[in-house]
Design a protein around this nucleic acid. Structure first.
Lengths: 208, 208
DNA sequence: GTCTATAATTAGATAGAC
DNA sequence: GTCTATCTAATTATAGAC
Protein backbone atom coordinates (compact mmCIF):
# COMPACT_ATOMS: atom_id res chain seq x y z
CA UNK A 1 0.00 0.00 0.00
CA UNK A 2 1.85 3.04 -1.22
CA UNK A 3 0.93 6.06 0.78
CA UNK A 4 2.82 9.31 0.66
CA UNK A 5 4.15 9.64 4.14
CA UNK A 6 4.42 13.24 5.33
CA UNK A 7 8.12 12.79 5.92
CA UNK A 8 8.81 11.41 2.47
CA UNK A 9 6.82 14.11 0.73
CA UNK A 10 8.74 16.73 2.67
CA UNK A 11 12.12 15.43 1.59
CA UNK A 12 10.96 14.99 -1.97
CA UNK A 13 9.84 18.60 -2.08
CA UNK A 14 13.08 19.78 -0.56
CA UNK A 15 14.91 18.11 -3.42
CA UNK A 16 12.54 19.54 -6.01
CA UNK A 17 12.81 23.05 -4.60
CA UNK A 18 16.59 22.98 -4.49
CA UNK A 19 16.83 21.52 -7.98
CA UNK A 20 14.32 24.02 -9.37
CA UNK A 21 16.37 26.96 -8.18
CA UNK A 22 19.65 25.47 -9.36
CA UNK A 23 18.34 24.38 -12.75
CA UNK A 24 16.83 27.82 -13.31
CA UNK A 25 19.90 29.81 -12.35
CA UNK A 26 22.73 27.54 -13.49
CA UNK A 27 21.06 25.28 -16.01
CA UNK A 28 20.23 21.60 -15.92
CA UNK A 29 23.54 20.20 -17.17
CA UNK A 30 25.61 22.58 -15.08
CA UNK A 31 23.87 21.47 -11.90
CA UNK A 32 25.31 18.40 -10.21
CA UNK A 33 23.41 15.97 -8.06
CA UNK A 34 26.01 16.61 -5.38
CA UNK A 35 25.04 20.26 -5.32
CA UNK A 36 21.38 19.39 -4.91
CA UNK A 37 22.28 17.06 -2.04
CA UNK A 38 24.39 19.68 -0.35
CA UNK A 39 21.62 22.26 -0.61
CA UNK A 40 19.14 19.86 0.97
CA UNK A 41 21.60 18.74 3.66
CA UNK A 42 21.13 15.14 2.69
CA UNK A 43 23.41 12.28 1.83
CA UNK A 44 24.56 11.08 -1.57
CA UNK A 45 22.30 8.11 -1.94
CA UNK A 46 19.02 9.66 -0.82
CA UNK A 47 18.22 11.44 -4.06
CA UNK A 48 17.95 8.08 -5.84
CA UNK A 49 15.50 6.80 -3.29
CA UNK A 50 13.01 9.47 -4.31
CA UNK A 51 14.03 9.74 -7.94
CA UNK A 52 15.30 6.31 -9.05
CA UNK A 53 15.96 7.61 -12.55
CA UNK A 54 18.13 10.42 -11.23
CA UNK A 55 18.55 13.96 -12.42
CA UNK A 56 16.44 13.63 -15.53
CA UNK A 57 13.47 12.43 -13.49
CA UNK A 58 13.79 15.50 -11.29
CA UNK A 59 13.78 17.71 -14.38
CA UNK A 60 10.71 15.95 -15.77
CA UNK A 61 8.88 16.37 -12.49
CA UNK A 62 9.71 20.09 -12.36
CA UNK A 63 8.58 20.61 -15.96
CA UNK A 64 5.34 18.74 -15.37
CA UNK A 65 4.48 20.39 -12.06
CA UNK A 66 5.38 23.79 -13.49
CA UNK A 67 3.02 23.51 -16.43
CA UNK A 68 0.33 22.17 -14.12
CA UNK A 69 0.80 25.05 -11.74
CA UNK A 70 0.73 27.73 -14.40
CA UNK A 71 -2.24 26.11 -16.12
CA UNK A 72 -4.23 25.89 -12.91
CA UNK A 73 -3.43 29.49 -12.07
CA UNK A 74 -5.06 30.68 -15.30
CA UNK A 75 -8.64 31.53 -14.41
CA UNK A 76 -9.66 34.74 -16.09
CA UNK A 77 -13.23 35.11 -14.82
CA UNK A 78 -14.33 37.21 -17.77
CA UNK A 79 -17.88 38.50 -17.71
CA UNK A 80 -19.91 39.57 -20.70
CA UNK A 81 -18.82 42.76 -22.37
CA UNK A 82 -20.57 46.10 -22.24
CA UNK A 83 -18.30 48.90 -23.47
CA UNK A 84 -14.87 49.34 -25.01
CA UNK A 85 -13.59 50.65 -21.69
CA UNK A 86 -14.92 47.54 -20.04
CA UNK A 87 -13.12 45.31 -22.52
CA UNK A 88 -9.90 47.16 -21.86
CA UNK A 89 -10.31 46.72 -18.13
CA UNK A 90 -10.98 43.00 -18.39
CA UNK A 91 -7.99 42.51 -20.66
CA UNK A 92 -5.89 44.41 -18.15
CA UNK A 93 -7.09 42.12 -15.41
CA UNK A 94 -6.13 39.12 -17.50
CA UNK A 95 -2.66 40.51 -18.04
CA UNK A 96 -2.36 41.24 -14.35
CA UNK A 97 -3.14 37.63 -13.60
CA UNK A 98 -0.48 36.39 -16.00
CA UNK A 99 1.92 38.89 -14.46
CA UNK A 100 1.14 37.61 -10.98
CA UNK A 101 1.77 34.04 -12.06
CA UNK A 102 5.25 34.86 -13.33
CA UNK A 103 5.95 36.89 -10.22
CA UNK A 104 5.78 33.77 -8.11
CA UNK A 105 9.24 32.36 -7.76
CA UNK A 106 8.35 28.72 -8.36
CA UNK A 107 6.51 29.58 -11.55
CA UNK A 108 9.31 31.85 -12.64
CA UNK A 109 11.87 29.10 -12.09
CA UNK A 110 9.91 26.38 -13.83
CA UNK A 111 9.18 28.65 -16.77
CA UNK A 112 12.85 29.55 -17.15
CA UNK A 113 13.82 25.89 -17.03
CA UNK A 114 11.18 24.96 -19.58
CA UNK A 115 12.41 27.60 -22.02
CA UNK A 116 16.09 27.15 -21.34
CA UNK A 117 16.02 23.38 -21.61
CA UNK A 118 13.50 23.47 -24.43
CA UNK A 119 15.71 21.26 -26.59
CA UNK A 120 15.60 18.50 -23.95
CA UNK A 121 11.81 18.36 -23.81
CA UNK A 122 9.97 15.33 -25.15
CA UNK A 123 7.27 15.93 -27.72
CA UNK A 124 4.69 15.44 -25.03
CA UNK A 125 6.26 18.02 -22.75
CA UNK A 126 6.63 20.48 -25.62
CA UNK A 127 2.95 20.03 -26.39
CA UNK A 128 2.01 20.95 -22.83
CA UNK A 129 3.88 24.20 -23.29
CA UNK A 130 2.25 24.97 -26.60
CA UNK A 131 -1.19 23.99 -25.37
CA UNK A 132 -0.96 26.35 -22.42
CA UNK A 133 -0.38 29.28 -24.75
CA UNK A 134 -3.15 28.07 -27.05
CA UNK A 135 -5.52 27.87 -24.12
CA UNK A 136 -4.87 31.45 -23.09
CA UNK A 137 -5.38 32.50 -26.69
CA UNK A 138 -8.67 30.65 -26.94
CA UNK A 139 -9.95 32.16 -23.70
CA UNK A 140 -9.31 35.63 -25.05
CA UNK A 141 -10.98 34.79 -28.36
CA UNK A 142 -14.04 33.42 -26.56
CA UNK A 143 -14.17 36.55 -24.47
CA UNK A 144 -14.07 38.96 -27.41
CA UNK A 145 -16.11 37.09 -29.99
CA UNK A 146 -19.61 37.81 -28.58
CA UNK A 147 -18.90 41.53 -28.74
CA UNK A 148 -18.00 41.56 -32.41
CA UNK A 149 -21.05 43.39 -33.75
CA UNK A 150 -20.79 46.22 -31.26
CA UNK A 151 -17.16 46.90 -32.02
CA UNK A 152 -17.00 47.46 -35.74
CA UNK A 153 -14.84 44.40 -36.12
CA UNK A 154 -15.16 41.42 -38.42
CA UNK A 155 -15.50 38.10 -36.66
CA UNK A 156 -12.41 37.05 -38.59
CA UNK A 157 -10.34 39.83 -37.09
CA UNK A 158 -10.79 38.68 -33.51
CA UNK A 159 -7.99 36.08 -33.56
CA UNK A 160 -5.77 38.68 -35.14
CA UNK A 161 -6.52 41.21 -32.42
CA UNK A 162 -5.99 38.55 -29.77
CA UNK A 163 -2.61 37.63 -31.25
CA UNK A 164 -1.56 41.27 -31.16
CA UNK A 165 -2.59 41.58 -27.53
CA UNK A 166 -0.84 38.34 -26.65
CA UNK A 167 2.30 39.61 -28.37
CA UNK A 168 2.31 42.59 -26.04
CA UNK A 169 1.93 40.32 -23.03
CA UNK A 170 4.54 37.84 -24.18
CA UNK A 171 7.14 40.34 -25.25
CA UNK A 172 7.00 42.24 -22.00
CA UNK A 173 7.57 39.07 -20.01
CA UNK A 174 10.17 37.51 -22.33
CA UNK A 175 12.12 40.74 -22.50
CA UNK A 176 12.23 41.04 -18.77
CA UNK A 177 12.99 37.41 -17.98
CA UNK A 178 14.99 36.16 -20.96
CA UNK A 179 16.81 39.24 -22.22
CA UNK A 180 17.29 41.29 -19.08
CA UNK A 181 17.51 38.24 -16.84
CA UNK A 182 15.53 39.97 -14.11
CA UNK A 183 13.99 37.60 -11.63
CA UNK A 184 11.63 40.20 -10.29
CA UNK A 185 9.05 41.51 -12.69
CA UNK A 186 9.20 45.28 -12.70
CA UNK A 187 5.96 47.22 -12.21
CA UNK A 188 7.13 49.80 -14.70
CA UNK A 189 6.83 47.19 -17.43
CA UNK A 190 3.32 46.35 -16.39
CA UNK A 191 2.36 50.01 -16.79
CA UNK A 192 3.95 50.08 -20.24
CA UNK A 193 1.80 47.17 -21.32
CA UNK A 194 -1.26 48.86 -19.88
CA UNK A 195 -0.75 51.96 -21.98
CA UNK A 196 0.04 49.89 -25.08
CA UNK A 197 -3.16 47.98 -24.55
CA UNK A 198 -5.06 51.24 -24.16
CA UNK A 199 -3.73 52.55 -27.45
CA UNK A 200 -4.54 49.32 -29.29
CA UNK A 201 -8.00 48.82 -27.87
CA UNK A 202 -9.14 52.41 -28.33
CA UNK A 203 -7.72 52.57 -31.85
CA UNK A 204 -9.04 49.28 -33.17
CA UNK A 205 -12.32 48.87 -31.36
CA UNK A 206 -15.07 51.36 -32.11
CA UNK A 207 -18.26 51.46 -30.12
CA UNK A 208 -21.35 51.50 -32.29
CA UNK B 1 54.51 39.25 -36.10
CA UNK B 2 51.24 37.42 -35.63
CA UNK B 3 49.49 36.94 -38.87
CA UNK B 4 46.45 34.78 -39.30
CA UNK B 5 47.59 32.03 -41.59
CA UNK B 6 44.92 30.78 -43.95
CA UNK B 7 45.28 27.28 -42.60
CA UNK B 8 44.93 28.34 -38.98
CA UNK B 9 41.88 30.47 -39.64
CA UNK B 10 40.27 27.59 -41.45
CA UNK B 11 40.70 25.20 -38.57
CA UNK B 12 39.61 27.83 -36.07
CA UNK B 13 36.42 28.38 -38.03
CA UNK B 14 35.80 24.67 -38.31
CA UNK B 15 35.89 24.49 -34.52
CA UNK B 16 33.63 27.50 -34.14
CA UNK B 17 31.11 26.17 -36.64
CA UNK B 18 30.96 22.76 -35.03
CA UNK B 19 30.68 24.23 -31.55
CA UNK B 20 28.01 26.71 -32.64
CA UNK B 21 25.77 23.97 -33.92
CA UNK B 22 26.33 21.74 -30.90
CA UNK B 23 25.89 24.51 -28.33
CA UNK B 24 22.68 25.62 -30.04
CA UNK B 25 21.12 22.20 -30.28
CA UNK B 26 22.43 20.44 -27.15
CA UNK B 27 23.44 23.33 -24.95
CA UNK B 28 26.83 24.56 -23.80
CA UNK B 29 27.29 22.34 -20.77
CA UNK B 30 25.94 19.26 -22.50
CA UNK B 31 28.44 19.61 -25.32
CA UNK B 32 31.83 18.03 -24.71
CA UNK B 33 35.10 19.14 -26.24
CA UNK B 34 35.49 15.57 -27.48
CA UNK B 35 32.33 15.94 -29.51
CA UNK B 36 33.59 19.14 -31.05
CA UNK B 37 36.87 17.44 -31.92
CA UNK B 38 35.11 14.47 -33.43
CA UNK B 39 32.90 16.70 -35.56
CA UNK B 40 35.92 18.59 -36.87
CA UNK B 41 37.91 15.39 -37.45
CA UNK B 42 40.74 16.72 -35.35
CA UNK B 43 42.73 15.42 -32.45
CA UNK B 44 42.21 16.02 -28.75
CA UNK B 45 44.89 18.59 -28.16
CA UNK B 46 44.27 20.84 -31.14
CA UNK B 47 41.31 22.69 -29.72
CA UNK B 48 43.53 24.13 -26.99
CA UNK B 49 45.99 25.40 -29.53
CA UNK B 50 43.32 27.72 -30.96
CA UNK B 51 41.40 28.33 -27.76
CA UNK B 52 43.86 28.10 -24.85
CA UNK B 53 41.11 28.84 -22.36
CA UNK B 54 39.02 25.96 -23.66
CA UNK B 55 35.29 25.63 -24.06
CA UNK B 56 34.38 28.89 -22.40
CA UNK B 57 36.58 30.83 -24.78
CA UNK B 58 34.80 29.19 -27.70
CA UNK B 59 31.46 30.22 -26.22
CA UNK B 60 32.63 33.80 -25.72
CA UNK B 61 33.84 33.97 -29.30
CA UNK B 62 30.54 32.66 -30.63
CA UNK B 63 28.55 35.13 -28.53
CA UNK B 64 30.72 38.03 -29.63
CA UNK B 65 30.77 37.15 -33.32
CA UNK B 66 27.03 36.47 -33.25
CA UNK B 67 26.15 39.88 -31.87
CA UNK B 68 28.55 41.49 -34.31
CA UNK B 69 27.03 39.63 -37.22
CA UNK B 70 23.44 40.43 -36.30
CA UNK B 71 24.33 44.06 -35.59
CA UNK B 72 26.11 44.48 -38.91
CA UNK B 73 23.22 42.89 -40.75
CA UNK B 74 20.82 45.56 -39.45
CA UNK B 75 20.71 48.24 -42.13
CA UNK B 76 17.17 49.40 -42.65
CA UNK B 77 17.67 51.98 -45.41
CA UNK B 78 14.55 53.94 -44.50
CA UNK B 79 13.69 56.87 -46.68
CA UNK B 80 11.53 59.82 -45.71
CA UNK B 81 7.89 59.09 -45.28
CA UNK B 82 5.07 60.09 -47.60
CA UNK B 83 1.87 58.19 -46.83
CA UNK B 84 0.55 55.72 -44.28
CA UNK B 85 0.77 52.97 -46.88
CA UNK B 86 4.39 53.91 -47.43
CA UNK B 87 5.12 53.69 -43.72
CA UNK B 88 3.55 50.27 -43.59
CA UNK B 89 5.64 49.11 -46.51
CA UNK B 90 8.88 50.36 -45.02
CA UNK B 91 8.10 48.72 -41.68
CA UNK B 92 7.37 45.51 -43.53
CA UNK B 93 10.73 45.74 -45.23
CA UNK B 94 12.38 46.22 -41.85
CA UNK B 95 10.64 43.14 -40.47
CA UNK B 96 11.65 41.21 -43.55
CA UNK B 97 15.26 42.09 -42.94
CA UNK B 98 15.09 40.93 -39.34
CA UNK B 99 13.39 37.78 -40.55
CA UNK B 100 16.13 37.16 -43.08
CA UNK B 101 18.79 37.59 -40.40
CA UNK B 102 17.24 34.92 -38.20
CA UNK B 103 16.78 32.67 -41.20
CA UNK B 104 20.51 32.38 -41.60
CA UNK B 105 21.68 29.35 -39.72
CA UNK B 106 24.71 30.92 -38.09
CA UNK B 107 22.66 33.81 -36.77
CA UNK B 108 19.95 31.45 -35.63
CA UNK B 109 22.47 29.33 -33.75
CA UNK B 110 24.26 32.22 -32.09
CA UNK B 111 20.96 33.79 -31.08
CA UNK B 112 19.72 30.54 -29.53
CA UNK B 113 22.97 30.15 -27.64
CA UNK B 114 22.86 33.72 -26.40
CA UNK B 115 19.33 33.29 -25.07
CA UNK B 116 19.77 29.78 -23.77
CA UNK B 117 23.02 30.50 -21.97
CA UNK B 118 21.87 33.95 -20.92
CA UNK B 119 22.72 33.22 -17.30
CA UNK B 120 26.36 32.57 -18.22
CA UNK B 121 26.80 35.92 -19.96
CA UNK B 122 29.05 38.56 -18.44
CA UNK B 123 27.57 41.99 -17.87
CA UNK B 124 29.40 43.20 -20.92
CA UNK B 125 27.99 40.46 -23.11
CA UNK B 126 24.49 41.01 -21.75
CA UNK B 127 24.81 44.69 -22.59
CA UNK B 128 25.64 43.88 -26.21
CA UNK B 129 22.42 41.93 -26.41
CA UNK B 130 20.35 44.70 -24.87
CA UNK B 131 22.03 47.39 -26.95
CA UNK B 132 21.21 45.57 -30.18
CA UNK B 133 17.52 45.62 -29.35
CA UNK B 134 17.76 49.26 -28.27
CA UNK B 135 19.42 50.14 -31.54
CA UNK B 136 16.64 48.61 -33.60
CA UNK B 137 14.12 50.44 -31.46
CA UNK B 138 15.89 53.75 -31.95
CA UNK B 139 16.10 53.29 -35.71
CA UNK B 140 12.35 52.80 -35.86
CA UNK B 141 11.73 55.83 -33.66
CA UNK B 142 13.97 57.98 -35.84
CA UNK B 143 12.13 56.74 -38.88
CA UNK B 144 8.67 57.56 -37.57
CA UNK B 145 9.32 60.76 -35.67
CA UNK B 146 9.56 63.16 -38.63
CA UNK B 147 6.12 62.06 -39.79
CA UNK B 148 4.38 62.84 -36.52
CA UNK B 149 2.36 65.86 -37.66
CA UNK B 150 0.93 64.14 -40.69
CA UNK B 151 -0.28 61.15 -38.76
CA UNK B 152 -2.45 62.52 -36.01
CA UNK B 153 -0.03 61.18 -33.41
CA UNK B 154 1.61 62.92 -30.48
CA UNK B 155 5.40 62.94 -30.59
CA UNK B 156 5.25 61.16 -27.24
CA UNK B 157 3.30 58.28 -28.70
CA UNK B 158 5.94 57.31 -31.21
CA UNK B 159 8.03 55.21 -28.80
CA UNK B 160 4.86 53.50 -27.68
CA UNK B 161 3.88 52.64 -31.23
CA UNK B 162 7.40 51.43 -31.92
CA UNK B 163 7.31 49.20 -28.87
CA UNK B 164 4.05 47.67 -30.02
CA UNK B 165 5.47 46.99 -33.46
CA UNK B 166 8.62 45.53 -31.97
CA UNK B 167 6.50 43.29 -29.77
CA UNK B 168 4.88 41.83 -32.87
CA UNK B 169 8.28 41.22 -34.43
CA UNK B 170 9.80 39.75 -31.28
CA UNK B 171 6.90 37.51 -30.35
CA UNK B 172 6.68 35.98 -33.77
CA UNK B 173 10.35 35.08 -33.72
CA UNK B 174 10.52 33.97 -30.08
CA UNK B 175 7.42 31.85 -30.45
CA UNK B 176 8.82 30.12 -33.46
CA UNK B 177 12.36 29.63 -32.19
CA UNK B 178 12.00 29.29 -28.42
CA UNK B 179 8.57 27.77 -27.92
CA UNK B 180 8.09 25.71 -31.05
CA UNK B 181 11.80 24.99 -31.41
CA UNK B 182 11.62 25.35 -35.18
CA UNK B 183 14.95 25.99 -36.80
CA UNK B 184 13.42 27.16 -40.01
CA UNK B 185 11.35 30.30 -39.84
CA UNK B 186 7.99 29.62 -41.41
CA UNK B 187 6.70 31.99 -44.07
CA UNK B 188 3.19 31.64 -42.71
CA UNK B 189 4.33 33.45 -39.58
CA UNK B 190 5.78 36.25 -41.62
CA UNK B 191 2.41 36.74 -43.29
CA UNK B 192 0.69 36.79 -39.92
CA UNK B 193 2.96 39.59 -38.77
CA UNK B 194 2.29 41.46 -42.00
CA UNK B 195 -1.44 41.46 -41.46
CA UNK B 196 -1.04 42.39 -37.79
CA UNK B 197 1.13 45.29 -38.83
CA UNK B 198 -1.45 46.33 -41.37
CA UNK B 199 -4.21 46.38 -38.76
CA UNK B 200 -2.09 48.34 -36.30
CA UNK B 201 -0.77 50.90 -38.74
CA UNK B 202 -4.07 51.59 -40.43
CA UNK B 203 -5.90 51.82 -37.11
CA UNK B 204 -3.48 54.04 -35.25
CA UNK B 205 -2.08 56.24 -37.98
CA UNK B 206 -4.43 58.67 -39.69
CA UNK B 207 -3.42 60.64 -42.71
CA UNK B 208 -4.18 64.33 -42.41
C1' DG C 1 50.05 23.00 -36.56
C1' DT C 2 48.68 18.59 -35.56
C1' DC C 3 49.08 14.40 -33.32
C1' DT C 4 48.92 10.53 -29.29
C1' DA C 5 48.67 9.48 -24.72
C1' DT C 6 47.36 10.40 -20.39
C1' DA C 7 46.87 13.08 -16.02
C1' DA C 8 43.57 14.99 -12.78
C1' DT C 9 39.17 15.62 -11.61
C1' DT C 10 34.45 15.08 -11.31
C1' DA C 11 30.17 13.30 -12.79
C1' DG C 12 26.07 10.16 -12.10
C1' DA C 13 24.89 6.16 -9.97
C1' DT C 14 24.91 1.95 -6.74
C1' DA C 15 25.67 -1.32 -2.68
C1' DG C 16 24.77 -2.21 1.56
C1' DA C 17 24.89 -0.86 6.70
C1' DC C 18 21.84 1.13 10.01
C1' DG D 1 14.11 6.43 5.05
C1' DT D 2 18.75 7.93 5.50
C1' DC D 3 23.49 7.20 5.70
C1' DT D 4 28.70 6.13 4.16
C1' DA D 5 31.66 4.49 0.93
C1' DT D 6 32.79 3.63 -3.52
C1' DC D 7 32.48 2.18 -8.59
C1' DT D 8 32.61 3.35 -13.36
C1' DA D 9 32.75 6.32 -16.91
C1' DA D 10 33.37 10.64 -18.82
C1' DT D 11 35.24 15.27 -18.71
C1' DT D 12 38.57 19.07 -19.26
C1' DA D 13 43.03 19.87 -19.89
C1' DT D 14 48.11 19.07 -20.53
C1' DA D 15 52.71 17.08 -21.98
C1' DG D 16 55.45 16.16 -25.39
C1' DA D 17 56.49 13.68 -30.00
C1' DC D 18 56.36 14.68 -34.84
Amino acid sequence: MKKDGAKGELQKNKILNAARELFATKGFEATTTREINRQTDSAEGLLYYYFPHGKREILDTIIYEGIQSRTNAIDFKFHSVSSVADIEQQLLNAFDQIWQIFSQQENYYSFMITIRERALLSNKQAKWLQDLIKEVRQLLIDFLTPATEKLGLQQDNIPQLVDIILSLFQSSIYDELLINNNQELNNQISHTVQSQLHLIVTSILVEK
